[in-house]
Write a protein that binds this DNA or RNA. Structure first.
Lengths: 460, 460
DNA sequence: CGATTTGTACGTTCACATTTT
DNA sequence: AAAAATGTGAACGTACAAATC
């Protein structure tokens, strides 16, 4: 290859290698990271082939490979044999939904908050708990004896989701995110790969990046994760497991068909993958198909988060874990939490077995439905996907907007929404869409105000 | 080297390599792990030199090296240039202090539980919180505004420990273990090394093993971590940070001298290490030296756990984090927890600023002192180390017992203690000692019963 | 369909630094 | 104090397989 070709077809990235700071691969990885973070390399950019870079810098091919691998495990790059290496779209998105000091005036339709119908029954229940004679146990370490009936309550909750499990398989975590992080940390080692939707829950992305776990977007024709695509990733992408949200997928809102559930379960069993099934939105729906866990019970960690179903302040999720992973995940939860609050664990169990639970769910749904009807009125149902009782929507935008651009403009006009870039995985192109949280605005009025702003933006 | 030497001086480990299952280094690492876990390779065993194994198996030196590295990052091995590779003593110790189903009859002197003096004031405070008009906020996601004064309470608490910090530097975690795990996950990458006491808190060991972080025991003449040894590890062991417990170190009970604190702070600054200072037992003591964080504020993550000081059920710890790590650790906490319970965060802050806090501390100390006097009566102070108001002791055993053997025998006689093997790091030889939890037995009477058993074992 | 492009990862070589003898 | 033993880790060479053309 003539050396001059560097001049003729300029490489998209021409690192200057200071041979002084060793090792080379680290220096390179560092420069790559800086160039991405500081905007000199834009998301979606195709990097030069490894061989070309090696040639250019006069180092070995493997040295480039190693440098790229470092960046890839941080979620900065995404490479495919044959097609090359691309800067991830989510490399710089500030996916952390922290926003320590967000202006008060913003109408919140970004973060998903449930409404507060459950708070009064929770308060009342807790008050009576504190008046019991043996209240002391709520403030110590939880004792194994107490958790038995709490686990039965978890079993009961999961039965509603079609998950057949039993007391011995139940573990507690400090919320669904905590469960996900624990499952990832225990089931994967550094460098492992797992398959996920091409747009997925941002908390999974950041946790995986922190742990050096690579996310492989399962590419499907439609939004819905298809069994064929899973099979493909299984055979070609060396994935060890799957993470999925079969009910009201976050953010795309699809609910997986029964056939796909069964097919994916079969694939998972045939290839001995693990599956993390996030059931956060299961009980939000009025009627539901059985969880995938029902079809691949020996391979599925089912996570029943309670923040969205009952109240976020509980900081509790239930896990149903197959025997072969039980010890591993129990240890991970211990490493991360030691234990959960016995007070909150008891409160949660009590509300679940109480007759107020159904009522809470019904009230949640009623509020969500009313708000969704309001949304339908402004944005329609065709380009604004979502279930009638769902608590977020997926608004597809006209060509002229990217999701992130729309987010920016909306924020400038006082409405917080989350653009597609926050959810996108790897080198997938971010969808021209934004996610709208249905129940987060304080009142239906403020929701409507937000909708007016969005509608206007779409009509402009 | 004559081939026959394999016969004459049998190698301590003769793996049989099935060349069918590739890659070689994984196959080897797998076999090594199995041989350790199934007891065919005992803790403390010196493995053959890498070159010898490479020769024996007819593979390249680096292939062995790579296999060993895998095992080392899981905490199974510990290698030193010049002296060889040893099976870690803690490779198989069931360090997880879970014990789901422990017989009721055991007198618990293993796990460290604080006494329950704080439970009534906590109950009362929480009841009044639930009666307030805006009780609803305890069940939602915590809102930034609320946490401001809670952070001020944290600052106030830390000031007592000599840590000068401010609101902006405070983060909340779901307990000290949660804080440690978050700090490790954010400050270290896979393969990084950190220095720790040669016997240390088991929760750190298991978290580090899960994250692939290597623990380097800081070898010192005495039990106390010495600045010289830190400096040595710094120069020769390529450590990125330190974890230490300067007040009433767990399990060895030493409290670090002022000179050592200053010296270590200087080293940390000079070599730009990070330091995780575990302040769990700081407020247990009546008088205390300033935290090391006071001397290296830009490098120290100070963790103030509240389980031992107030109550375990709060599941809360405060972190004071220097600016340069703030974002990183905030993100890690988000990845692992999203947030802490606003109810428990508020309760904790209120008890700290209330006038009952001092009283709780005083009552804790009183109980601990009384129990320690009881222990002194049976076991003396010479071989049973610990502070007068400490909540655990370190009992040095006569030669004929190993710590783990003593633990076994004591358990058979109805007393749970924790042997040195549970705490030992890397290839250090486990101390002939056991840790005794002072306040864990339900009553002073049952403590005394336990002491009678232990005393008898020592006198036999 | 076959050739080419492209990333992957294992095994290898080697220089080096420390510890032990 | 010199020599031998020993582990470390970067860089390299290479076979391979998938994607693309």
């Amino acid at each position: 290859m003539p050396v001059n070709s560097f001049e003729d077809y300029p490489m998209t990235w021409k690192p200057v290698l200071n041979r002084a700071d060793k090792p080379i691969y680290r220096a390179l990885a560092g420069q790559l990271e800086r160039d991405i973070r500081e905007g000199r390399l834009l998301p979606g950019t195709k990097l030069p082939p490894q061989r070309e870079l090696a040639d250019f810098l006069d180092v070995n091919l493997s040295t480039i490979s190693k440098a790229f691998k470092v960046a890839e495990l941080k979620g900065l790059l995404s490479a495919t044999v044959g097609s090359g290496t691309y800067v991830s779209f989510d490399a710089i998105s500030n996916a952390y939904l922290l926003e320590e000091q967000k202006p008060e005036s913003l109408i919140e339709m970004g973060a998903i908050l449930p409404d507060s119908v459950s708070y009064r029954p929770l308060r009342d229940l807790m008050q009576s708990m504190l008046q019991e004679d043996d209240y002391a146990k709520w403030f110590g370490y939880s004792r194994p004896g107490d958790s038995l009936w709490q686990k039965d309550a978890a079993v009961r909750l999961m039965k509603r989701a079609g998950v057949r499990t039993s007391r011995e398989h139940i573990l507690f975590s400090a919320g669904a995110q905590n469960a996900i992080a624990s499952a990832l940390a225990s089931l994967c080692r550094h460098g492992d790969r797992i398959g996920v939707d091409h747009h997925t829950y941002p908390g999974l992305k950041t946790a995986a990046a922190m742990l050096g776990i690579q996310l492989v977007p399962i590419r499907s024709e439609t939004d819905e994760m298809s069994p064929e695509a899973v099979l493909y990733a299984c055979k070609n992408e060396n994935i060890k497991g799957l993470y999925l949200i079969p009910d009201c997928q976050n953010p795309m809102t699809y609910t997986m068909s029964l056939e796909s559930r069964r097919a994916i379960a079969r694939i998972v069993q045939a290839h001995d993958l693990f599956m993390i099934e996030d059931g956060t939105y299961h009980l939000i729906g009025e009627t539901r198909l059985p969880a995938i866990a029902a079809y691949a019970p020996e391979h599925t960690i089912y996570i029943a988060g309670l923040s969205k179903v009952i109240a976020p302040g509980l900081r509790l999720a239930y896990l149903s874990v197959p025997l072969k992973f039980l010890d591993l995940i129990r240890k991970a939860l211990y490493n991360i939490n030691i234990s959960v609050s016995p007070l909150l664990a008891e409160l949660t169990a009590r509300i679940i077995v109480s007759n107020q639970f159904e009522q809470v769910l019904a009230l949640h749904r009623e509020e969500a439905k009313a708000r969704n009807r309001l949304i339908d009125r402004y944005l329609g149902r065709e380009n604004c996907l979502g279930e009638p009782e769902g608590i977020f929507r997926w608004l597809r935008l006209p060509e002229r907007y990217t999701g992130d651009r729309f987010e920016q403009i909306a924020a400038a006009q006082g409405v917080q929404v989350y653009g597609g870039g926050r959810f996108v995985v790897g080198s997938t192109a971010p969808a021209n869409a934004v996610r709208l949280a249905v129940c987060s605005p304080e009142s239906r009025e403020s929701l409507e105000q937000g909708l007016i702003v969005l509608k206007k933006m779409l009509d402009e």
